[in-house]
Design a protein around this nucleic acid. Structure first.
Lengths: 341, 341
DNA sequence: ACATTTTGTTTACGCGCGTAAACTACAAAA
DNA sequence: TTTTGTAGTTTACGCGCGTAAACAAAATGT
């Protein structure tokens, strides 16, 4: 590979001039600039990223901490990652995929301190996320997919607008004529970590139910499909006798559909189901096709990466469509007016 | 962050000694070694990766080229990636996620030449893969998930044992009593790129059918679920009147199940369905549960990464369970003896 | 005419580490 | 005693680039 020195010699200028042509941080006269550029082309010159990183103090590499614990049924996480990776590429950065089995980040901090990582993107963010505080203390810039309860400080997030999504979902059910609906959320395990999404979705649902005058019952289920199947029985046997459910978790939605099919419960006639988090690509696997109001994961990953990188560059906030994403209500085959109107 | 110089000073040795303690490339006396190590701990020293990379000529970063074109229904690709990323982590490497929309790799080569990438892992490998040859020409080490028809040269692969899987699948069908079976593969588009998996699976099926004396009919379908739904009609209307199908592609399997449910065809009574590529995590979304013989994607990603990294380190082949993975036959609810025995 | 600024380019050095080569101390062999 | 290792450590330099500071030349002002 050609080096800066070779380019400089071929162009008949000093090495610094080559660098300045590349960075634009000093004005270089047009003729010189042309000579340098053509020399670079002739030699197929690419500045060595390691040398740039060492001299410049930044690696232009960010990490995406990828939760592997819950290998869910749907690939939302992958889409977050692809969106972020693609954005990074486009901005001259690179995204390293960092599988995490727990929430420890000492290795991440060590790697950042070793100069390999300029920043980190986090998923499955908790309201009070110890990872965020640890990274902040270590002065490592953080981008979030999701957000903590500290709205002001950790400003580099891309999150769902749970209040808005819950409102749209409940409003839709209200307009269909439902009076009593259920909200299916994840069972909170032994661990104390409460993913912020659960809290915000819950709060949004409660507020929306109140606003539209619906009676709301909460059901809990773990993330797997079988739990969703068991859950259906809880739902139909519940004294709340809901006519529709809004489910946060794709596994539960599918489980409900499957069990309904088995026991002869008609969806959406006997029960409406709306999923709040099933990616487009997954819906085609469901039968009947799930109605959804799901987050645009790819765009959110893109947004988080762009905001983080803009921060790393010290540039002002990029012009992005939004930081809070509602998701589009997609009415398909699992929602309808209740049959006991 | 502490530097080598600080460690050296605190330990009362030269900087080189610190490096040699770390690398082990020269013998250092035990007492000195202890002093150095304790100094490193005291200062929480981490060698700067960029400086290491610049001085040493290798970045310890590899890229995983991630095909984004076909956002499939299942997340096999993600598992390949997680396996590879986790293996990389464990070996002190990092894996950057490189989304690709087409098969061009000039950017990849440029980035490798810029010193950021030591090697590349490829997926969706074609029999004659122009990416492999381009990377080889550029002297960039390649690991494959899949493999080309050049068995000897591009030895760093982890692939399915399609012949073995096809044999196991057909044998299973034969033992169930099926006489006429179908093989569902992907429709080959306008593009000339034929993913090696399609060729090898096809050849394996033909050979196995011959071996076990079954009549084999090939059906083609694109990757989406709706195509699979349409395909079921082709299958039942086909003069071949097959009693079971083996499907390479998860979308087709699901589509068949769905359409069967709609038109009242009983699976597996009227038609057995075996999927050759549906990951575990996806099966729970199907109803009835798909019988499968699917590749252990995580392990394959792990294997590809380990072999590539071993090559980069110049060490001998790591001791890995295998390079060709059969996949376990998982009999679930979509396969049975034909009812017209 | 000279002083001053502006513009364009170069010189010079540091970033933190790997490692070849040189060196030192000391043991073994002659 | 002198010679010849040998083990352990250091010296010295290069990796390729960013960028502050120095500099030269041209433009501007007085």
């Amino acid at each position: 590979m050609a080096t800066r020195a070779e380019v400089a010699k071929l162009a008949g200028v000093s090495e610094a001039t080559v660098s300045y042509v590349l960075s634009g941080k000093r004005k270089i006269s047009e003729p010189v600039q042309r000579r340098v550029v053509s020399a670079m082309q002739k030699l197929n010159y690419r500045p060595n990223r390691m040398a740039q990183a060492l001299a410049g103090g930044k690696s232009r590499v960010i990490a995406l901490l990828f939760p592997t614990a819950a290998k869910g049924i749907a690939n939302v996480d992958l889409e977050y990652g692809l969106g972020a990776a693609a954005a990074a590429q486009e901005l001259g950065y690179h995204l390293v995929m960092w599988p995490t089995f727990d929430r420890s980040i000492s290795e991440v901090i060590a790697t950042a301190n070793a100069g390999l990582l300029d920043g980190v993107i986090l998923m499955e963010v908790a309201m009070q996320d110890e990872r965020v505080s640890a990274l902040s203390k270590a002065k490592i810039p953080v981008g979030l997919i999701g957000r903590t309860d500290n709205e002001g400080r950790d400003s580099l997030f891309a999150d769902r607008d749970f209040a808005g999504a819950a409102d749209a979902a409940v409003k839709y059910f209200a307009e269909l004529g439902h009076k009593r609906i259920g909200f299916v959320t994840e069972r909170r395990g032994k661990s104390d970590i409460v993913v912020a999404a659960l809290v915000r979705a819950h709060d949004g649902m409660v507020a929306a139910a109140k606003k539209y005058g619906l009676k709301l019952t909460q059901f809990e289920s773990s993330t797997d499909v079988d739990a969703g199947r068991r859950l259906l029985h809880q739902i139909i046997e519940s004294p709340a006798s809901v006519t529709g459910v809004i489910a946060l978790n794709p596994g539960a939605s599918v489980g409900i559909l499957q069990e309904a099919n088995i026991i002869g419960l008609s969806i959406p006639k006997d029960l409406s189901v709306l999923s709040m988090a099933s990616p487009e690509s997954f819906v085609s696997a469901t039968q009947p096709r799930l109605s959804t109001i799901s987050p645009p994961a790819y765009e959110m990953g893109d947004c988080a990466a762009r905001r983080l990188i803009a921060h790393l560059e010290g540039s002002k906030e990029p012009d992005l469509p939004q930081k809070l994403w509602l998701g589009e209500l997609q009415v398909r085959e699992t929602t309808a007016a209740p049959n006991n109107l």
